[in-house]
Structures are given as C-alpha cells and as structure tokens.
C-alpha cells in the first residue's frame, strides 16, 4: 500500500501513461480493454463456431440467452434490418459488462500485480476512463450520422439539420442548426458521462471503503481493540455490500448504454 491515506486515493486514480500531452496513451486502459475484448471474442466466438441447433450445452445456452435478450430489446425499439445493429448492441452490452466487472476485483490486487511487473500505476477499470466511454459514444455518434445519411440521404439530412424543427425559413436556419448540433452532441456526451460517472464514482467508493483499512490498522497499532473491530468489520461489510449493489450498477449501466445506442440509431433511421 502506498504510504498514507492521503496518497492512497490519488495513487489509485492515476493511469499508467505513456507519452506527453494529448498524444499520450493510458496503457492500463488500452491493455485491459484489449484483454477483455479478446475474452469477449473468444468466449462468444467459441460458442458461435460450435453452435449446434440441437440441445445446447450450458455455456452455449447462456450465450444464446444473452444474444436473444439483446435481439429482443432491439426488436422492440428498432424496426428495420437488425443485421448490423444487433451485433453492435451485443458488443456494447457484453464489453461494457466485462469492463465494468473489473471494478469487483479488490482494488489493490491489480496494482500489486502490475507492481510486480514493474508498473507503478494500474487502473483496472477501463470504463472509469473517460477515453473509453467517449470512444464508444463518439463511435455511436458516427453511426447515428451514418444511419441518418442512409435513411434520408446526405442532402436530406443536411436539409433537416437546417430546416427542422422550427421551419425552413432562411432566418430560422441558424437556430435550427444550433439546436440540432446541441441535440446531436448531447447524445454521446450523455452516453459517455453516464457510464464514466457511474463507474468512476463506484470505484471511488471502493477506495473510500478501503481507507477503513488504514483506520483499523492504526487502531490495532495503538492497541484500540474496539476501533480495530469496528473498522475491520465495517470494511468487510461495506466492501461486500457495495460490491453486491455494484453488480446491479454494472449490468444496469451496460444495459442503458446498449439501449440508448439502439434508441439513438433507430431515431436516426426513422423518416420524418
């Protein structure tokens, strides 16, 4: 553990960074995302390759459950060809779950492991890095624009940017455009900030609970048995409780990200 509690939290909130300024990379975020992405592809790819139409194994049944759940969610919102949107939603859903789940790993263990490998910092939770959430939400924004072009044509969509919602009078072009840009940008910002904020806050709460470790260690050092017991039991109970509650947040945030993506794209897809 890093020195004192005042150093503990900043330490845990520092990325393993390569490079300077904008052109720097968070190696921990990138590597964790790569590992989890490959895990997702391997897990679902293995099932997809061996998928039987007969009686499925437990693992295949589970994967199919996820696939059918995602497909069912999209079916409700999006009326059109799901052959691209459904895999997109599945990727978002499962990948975000995988990334969020990293938050349940006891927060000091990844840092310790990275430390033995020579890295001084290691944030294990990619979704608590705004780069990750914005990367996904901006990709979604590009897809929204792409779907708009596909549904309305490039000219039609640009016309709509200037002519809706107030009307096509030339004086209204600028207000229309400004409102549409705000609306368009609000989508990725809300998507990314919601996920980032939830996971960052969740991670922070785990860190605060971990601070109890300093408290009971100090109490033990001073011979304060009551303080030690309260601190120790408190840390165990709070870690477990917050962890269990966090499982809900992990799934819920992944679900929200997926559903909102589908909603945004289906809004873009619909003709006005």
């Amino acid at each position: 553990m890093a020195g004192s509690s005042s150093e503990y939290i900043p330490h845990h909130l520092t990325h393993l960074t390569v490079g300077e300024g904008f052109w720097s990379f968070h190696a921990d975020t990138l590597i964790m995302t790569a590992i989890l992405g490959v895990a997702f592809l391997w897990m679902f790819g293995a099932v997809a390759r061996k998928a039987t139409t007969g009686v499925p194994g437990k693992f295949q049944a589970f994967v199919e459950l996820v696939v059918e759940f995602v497909d069912g969610q999209i079916k409700e919102v999006f009326h059109g060809d799901r052959s691209f949107l459904a895999p997109l939603a599945l990727t978002i859903f499962v990948l975000v779950i995988f990334m969020n789940t990293m938050d349940l790993i006891p927060i000091d263990i990844p840092g310790m492991l990275a430390g033995t490998a020579g890295a001084h910092y290691w944030r294990v939770l990619p979704t608590a890095d705004a780069n990750t959430t914005f990367a996904m939400s901006l990709t979604v924004l590009l897809l929204v624009i792409g779907y708009s072009f596909k549904a309305k044509g490039v000219g039609g969509y640009i016309h709509e940017l200037f002519a809706a919602p107030f009307g096509s009078h030339p004086l209204l072009w600028l207000p229309n455009f400004a409102l549409n840009i705000v609306e368009l940008l609000a989508k990725p910002v809300s998507l990314a900030m919601r996920l980032f904020g939830n996971m960052y806050a969740g991670e922070l709460v785990f860190m605060l609970i971990a601070l109890l470790g300093f408290a009971w260690a100090g109490a033990l050092h001073d011979g304060n048995i009551l303080g030690f017991a309260l601190g120790f039991i408190g840390q165990v109970l709070l870690t477990a409780g917050w962890g269990i509650f966090h499982i809900l947040i992990i799934l819920l945030q992944a679900f929200i990200f997926m559903v909102l993506t589908v909603v945004y794209i289906s809004m873009a897809h619909e003709h006005h």
Partner: peptide, 30 residues
C-alpha cells in the same frame, strides 16, 4: 482526454466488426 480515445475507438470498431461478421450470424442462426 487524450489519444487513448482514438485507440479505444479503433479497438471498439474492430470488436463490433468481428461480432457483426463472425459471432452474431452463426449464433442467431442456431
């Protein structure tokens, strides 16, 4: 925010593409 965003976005696109091409069709077909 830094260049990590670009890397993450590209990685995400690769994942989406792979899922689209190789994972979704056989699973849904089955």
């Amino acid at each position: 925010i830094n260049a990590t965003l670009i890397g993450q976005a590209l990685g995400f696109l690769v994942l989406v593409w792979f899922t689209w091409k190789f994972i979704w069709p056989p699973l849904l077909g089955a």
